[in-house]
């Protein structure tokens, strides 16, 4: 007799139900919406791929997508190197360790909308430290009316909020490098740049992969902070994808279009994350 039966499937069932309710059913609902012009169950009309075609040619959305890519690129370009530098300059032992860990954790504990509010105040030219200082230095800074200033403020805010995450991840990565690597490098008379380039950076690769993916996904989905700080303005200068989506779904109640848009949004994130992952790990298995 074959020791074979299907009873084990019952053990998988709870997870399957959980995933169904948390992901598969909502997602399929969205897929369902995306091919219909729908307001409520009695007011619906099948439109096929029309929403998709419309979205991919909508200049407002394409602008927003472009803006989003530029934004995520800037976030990664600033936060990853800065996070590594912060991690490298953190103390390795003594009282400085808990102190710097707590200090770095603080921004991560602040809720998104509070971060937005904080920077809204800090950026004001009359009572805000940042806005006032820039203006007293003779720079004409106003994040509410100048797109460049608005961009800079949103970026600085994100850097302030999330560089700690990269730094903490890198710090944990650095701490896991055995001392003997540094000792060998000293014996081999390696310069400190060579130590970074050939020991620290390669050993940080795995945590950097996580950091890059987390920061990409988060920044690509950013909503609350710019919404609180600038409301997407001035004009549409800081209107990122998720805000455009919210306006479409909740402002205009354009559910079908918003659904099609959500799916494209989701696929972009999936695709870019996959590209990052593949690019950063493809060397691992080569001889």
């Amino acid at each position: 007799m074959k020791p074979y039966n299907n009873k084990a499937w019952w053990l998988v069932l709870p997870v399957f139900v959980l995933v169904a309710f948390s992901a598969i059913i909502p997602m399929m609902t969205v897929v369902n919406y995306s091919v219909q012009d729908i307001f409520d169950p009695s007011t619906r009309y099948f439109v096929g791929t029309e929403w998709y075609r419309e979205i991919l040619t909508d200049p407002r959305l394409l602008d927003s997508l472009m803006r989003q890519f530029v934004y995520s690129f800037c976030v990664l370009a600033i936060e990853v190197p800065l996070g590594i530098i912060v991690a490298l300059s953190m103390p390795r032992r003594g009282l400085g360790v808990p102190f710097s860990l707590i200090l770095l954790s603080l921004p991560l504990l602040v809720p998104w909308n509070v971060v937005g509010t904080i920077w809204q105040i800090i950026g004001r030219e009359d009572i805000g430290l940042y806005g006032w200082t820039l203006n007293s230095l003779g720079l004409d800074y106003n994040y509410a009316s100048n797109p460049r200033d608005a961009w800079a403020t949103v970026l600085v805010m994100d850097v302030w909020h999330w560089t700690s995450l990269v730094a903490l991840l890198c710090y944990s990565g650095l701490r896991s490098i055995p001392d003997v690597y540094y000792q060998a490098a000293r014996i081999d008379r390696a310069s400190s740049w060579a130590v970074f380039r050939y020991i620290q950076l390669p050993k940080l690769k795995n945590v950097l992969l996580i950091a890059v993916m987390l920061r990409f996904m988060d920044s690509f989905m950013i909503y609350t902070e710019p919404f609180v700080l600038t409301g997407g303005g001035p004009g549409t200068a800081t209107t990122f994808l998720s805000q455009t989506l919210t306006q479409m779904a909740l402002g205009q109640f354009d559910l079908g279009r918003a659904a099609a848009f959500s799916l494209i949004y989701f696929l972009i994130i999936l695709l870019v994350t996959w590209v990052f992952y593949t690019a950063m790990t493809h060397n691992d298995n080569k001889g």
Partner: peptide, 9 residues
């Protein structure tokens, strides 16, 4: 050293 140290990359 006792355990191998190589520069991975």
């Amino acid at each position: 050293f006792q355990f191998p140290v190589v520069y991975d990359t």
